[in-house]
Nucleic acid binder design. Structure first.
Length: 873
RNA sequence: GGGCCGUUAGCUCAGCGGUAGAGCGCCCGCCUUACACGCGGGAUGCCGCAGGUUCGAUCCCUGCACGGCCCACCA
């Protein structure tokens, strides 16, 4: 450990191996205390991990390590999700590149290929999680489609079926033409697309003017089974009850009255296509209309469309519009923007399609989840996500769970002729055929916290680890996944599957845009780790992960974090350089310090140290990594390194003895304590450093996690020392500022004279601090102002530094002028308060007293500056 | 249409009732032996707009504007 620069790669590799060999993250059921259990949001086996995963898992790892350091038994379960449509799409792309497709391959062969792909992909993903430093219990690896999970899925399906909560029926569903499958409502995203509103003339049956409907989807008109108008619309009232003819095919449909229709929109007349529009479907239900399919599952027009049969939706629209126009049916075409549903996996436009699907009834399942939220058994962090979560549960609709793809859990229902279907994992016997569909991938995901512990078997693991503690995930799957886990967990076991959900934001690119392959703005976490080290990437992400907020990811932040890692490394290097080769028996302990005799820098840093550890703990308890990171960063860099280490140097370089040992003790203890506090955020460098420091701290644990957080031997908080040190710091800064602004070379040692109300005490006790840090040669109490001197005014103390022949006094006057202006601005602000009778009458006493002190101080400062300026003129 | 979040230094973002903060960037000076992945110093802000509450508001309340996200059946 002597390199000037920390080299992460070899350290990380060695530690990953060491942790795993020591089974450091292994958890088994044991007596006493509830464990802190977390299940990983299983990444889809679609490829490699992205920065979003890095954030999600870094957060979980931070929380898990934090709990372990607090002494809690913790368990973090790894695994992957088979990822249904998403994964099948990846494979289909591969096949396409090979100029073939899944149908040519056949179901069996296709699934075999999927298995091979899955195996490789899991390996990649879990390897990446290892590299990220994730303290997962590797022996618990689970997969949503492995044998144990398949049993859970079957059991869940059967139980819901038996309770009458699963049914099969022909409904209007969201159909993705490209993926060739139905989707649930929440798998449909809305996108604003430019289109047109077409005004189309429908003639009256038997002659007559008829009416004009307005539609964005003329190609669906072959599926029309009515035209609807508002019952209160005087324009169309006479038409109600008559019949109009669909252009080209001349099929007659009734004009009906339904209050769903808006007066103002379009022409006030709506063509009703129950088989291809949700609203039309509902109107159809109310009026007992037939649902005619004009578009098939392949996205092409059906025989209903007569001459247009076989055309794709898109081509049909163009053709129909052209023909309408040619034949004089098109009365008007206006630009129209409307939100259309698109597939969340492939972004092609969703076709509402009438088809036979499996559904899970939701209303009944949602109630316990609502109750758990309302009575606080389930908490969402940050809390503002609770409302959208709640609203969704309240307005929940039945969940379409069947998918017309191959990759997934096959629906365990078997059919034979007209017999009643049988729910079974295996074939019930000869002649039975299984349902061709598979279950929505989110069905198995919803069971994840149950299934990873062997449920529905009553395993010891399940008894011990379920329910879990905290779930960490992004807000984009709050409904898709979080809500469904709550529903399932409560439905099957009567307990919330996790008591807390931590909802984080999305990692976006530098300019705030969502990362996507097509935009080419994706950040590869592996590349970041290669360049800057894992700790740097983790720290950069965690330091920006404010609850629920998106992160605009800039590589610069990783570089800053890398610098911070190096800062920690070098402070350790410095401390080690100043320690004897071998640690004393029992190490350096704070308890051995002569408390009463500690010098200011020590009392101060211990006070700050204690406050910082408390702050970091509070923030991590509340899942706020950014605030914890900031507190530790500021403490280590701006307090420990910038001031305390500088002040300790004198003693460390001096003769052996009690003073040196005190300095060593404090440095060792504070550094080890800080490093442990940082460990959840950056496990590698802290582990590495701990190994070389622990003996000096009198610790024998092999790894940080085994040692637990540093416990303080007593209360080191010391407001007086903090106040006094602030004075020293202000004094040093003011002299440094003077030097810098007047270009006094750093190696030129200055002789100074100090005066002021606190000067006596400050000088006497802390003479050495100011002398050392401000580059003074001598510092004498004020007896008389030396002639031709520059002046540094800090709060409560004024330094006069003779500099005749060194500096330009015109410049000094200028500088003092700036200082004076600042002082006067301060006074003005404070006076506005102190001279306000209302403030004096109504503000709390402490505030008034404080303001008066500030006022006095500022005035003293101003007077000092004025006097000095006068002397120089 | 409903809801949520944001609007603070050039950029990215903290702070959320008592004289405006960080990181990066910028300017000046330093290889001062832990660290140039560093050290010292400096500049920069109508804290979105308008009202209100308060002795006092960047912070609380109400409107408004702009941006983003989620939900939603105007074809």
């Amino acid at each position: 450990m002597i390199e000037k620069i920390y080299d992460p790669k070899p350290v990380e590799e060695a530690l990953i191996r060491a942790w795993e060999e020591a089974k450091l993250f292994r958890s088994t059921p044991r007596l006493g205390g509830r464990p802190f259990t977390v299940v990983i949001p299983p990444p889809n086996v679609t490829g490699a991990l992205h920065v979003g995963h890095a954030l999600d898992n870094a957060l979980q790892d931070a929380f898990i390590r934090h709990q372990r350091l607090l002494g809690r038994q913790a368990c973090w379960v790894p695994g992957c999700d088979h990822g249904g449509i998403a994964t099948q799409n990846v494979m289909e792309k591969q096949l396409k590149a090979e100029k073939t497709d899944r149908h040519a391959l056949g179901r069996e062969a296709f699934l075999e290929r999927m298995q091979v792909w899955t195996r490789d992909c899991k390996k990649t993903i879990l390897g990446q999680l290892r590299r990220l430093g994730c303290s997962l219990d590797w022996e618990r690896e689970a997969f949503t489609m492995d044998e144990v999970r398949a049993k859970a899925v079957f059991y869940a399906f059967r139980t819901l079926w038996e309770k009458g909560l699963i049914y099969r029926g022909e409904r209007l569903v969201n159909w993705c033409v490209r993926c060739g499958t139905a989707l649930s409502d929440i798998e449909v995203e809305r996108e604003e697309r430019k289109g047109a509103l077409y005004h189309i003339h429908y003639r009256l049956e038997g002659g007559g003017e008829g009416l004009v409907v307005a539609t964005t989807r003329p190609e669906t008109m072959f599926g029309d089974t009515a035209v609807a108008v508002n019952p209160k619309d005087p324009r169309w009232k006479p038409m109600v009850g008559r019949k109009v003819l669909i252009p080209f095919i001349d099929r007659a449909v009734p004009v009906i009255a339904d209050s769903y229709v808006e007066f103002e929109f379009g022409t006030g007349a709506l063509k009703v296509t129950p088989a291809h529009d949700q609203n039309d479907w509902e109107i159809g239900q109310r009026h007992d209309l037939a649902a005619l399919k004009a578009i098939g599952p392949d996205g092409r027009l059906t025989a209903q469309a007569g001459p247009y049969e076989g055309l794709s939706r898109e081509k049909a629209r163009d053709q129909v519009v052209a023909d309408l126009e040619a034949r004089g049916y098109l009365r008007k075409k206006e630009d129209h923007k409307s939100p259309v549903g698109v597939c969340y996996r492939c972004h092609s436009v969703i076709e509402p399609l009438l088809s036979l699907q499996w559904f899970v009834k939701q209303a009944e399942l949602a109630l316990p989840a609502l109750k758990a939220l309302d009575d606080g058994r389930f908490k969402i962090h940050p809390a503002n996500w609770a409302k959208p979560y709640r609203d969704w549960l309240v307005n929940i609709k039945d969940w379409c769970v069947s998918r017309q793809i191959w990759w997934g859990h096959r629906i365990p229902v078997w059919y034979r002729g007209d017999e009643k279907p049988v729910v079974s994992l295996e074939s019930p016997g000869a002649g039975w055929t299984q349902d061709l569909d598979v279950l929505d991938t989110w069905f198995s995901s919803a069971l994840w916290p149950l299934a990873v512990f062997g449920w529905p078997e009553k395993t010891p693991d399940f008894a011990y680890y379920y329910p879990t503690a905290t779930l960490v995930t992004g807000y984009e799957i709050l409904h898709l996944w979080v809500a469904r886990m709550q529903m399932m967990g409560l439905a099957f076991e009567g307990k919330v599957p996790f008591s807390d959900a931590v909802i984080h934001g999305i990692v976006r690119d530098k300019s705030g845009k969502k990362m996507s392959k097509s935009l080419g703005n994706v950040v590869d976490p592996l590349l970041m780790m290669d360049k800057y080290g894992t700790d740097a990437l983790r720290f950069a992400l965690l330091a920006q992960a404010h609850p629920g907020k998106d992160i605009a990811f800039d590589e610069q932040s990783v570089l800053s974090a890398r610098n911070f890692v190096n800062k920690l490394w070098n402070s350790t290097r410095f401390v080690l350089m100043n320690l004897p080769p071998r640690a004393p028996d029992g190490g350096y302990q704070l308890g051995q310090l002569p408390r009463a005799e500690l010098e200011l820098a020590d009392r101060w840093i211990l006070s700050r140290y204690q406050a910082t550890l408390a702050k970091a703990k509070t923030h991590l308890d509340a899942y706020e990594t950014a605030a914890a990171a900031e507190a530790l960063y500021a403490f280590l860099w701006d307090e420990l390194c910038a001031w305390h280490i500088e002040l300790a140097k004198a003693r460390l370089l001096g003769p052996d003895g009690a003073r040196k040992d005190a300095a060593r003790t404090i440095l060792v203890q504070v550094l080890v304590g800080t490093l442990k506090a940082l460990h959840p955020l950056m496990p590698f460098v802290t582990e590495e450093i701990y190994a070389s420091l622990k003996s000096y701290a009198g610790e024998s644990a092999r790894f940080v996690l085994q040692g637990g957080y540093h416990a303080l031997d007593c209360d080191w908080s010391n407001p007086e020392a903090e106040k006094e040190m602030a004075l020293v710091m202000a004094a040093v800064t003011s002299i440094r500022s003077l030097r810098a602004q007047l270009r006094v070379p750093i190696d030129m040692k200055l002789a100074a004279v100090a005066e002021g109300p606190f000067a006596g005490k400050t000088l006497k006790t802390h003479h050495a601090y100011v002398t050392l840090l401000a580059g003074l040669e001598s510092l004498e109490p004020f007896s008389a102002r030396p002639p031709r001197s520059a002046t540094a005014v800090a709060e409560g103390v004024t330094f006069h530094i003779p500099l005749a022949g060194v500096i330009d006094f015109a410049k000094e006057r200028e500088r003092l002028g700036r200082e004076l202006a600042k002082a006067e601005a301060d006074i003005a602000k404070i006076e506005a308060k102190v001279k306000n009778p209302d403030f004096l009458a109504r503000a709390p006493e402490g505030q008034i007293a404080e303001a008066k002190v500030q006022h006095e101080a500022a005035r003293g400062r101003r007077d000092e500056l004025r006097k000095t300026l006068a002397d120089l003129s």
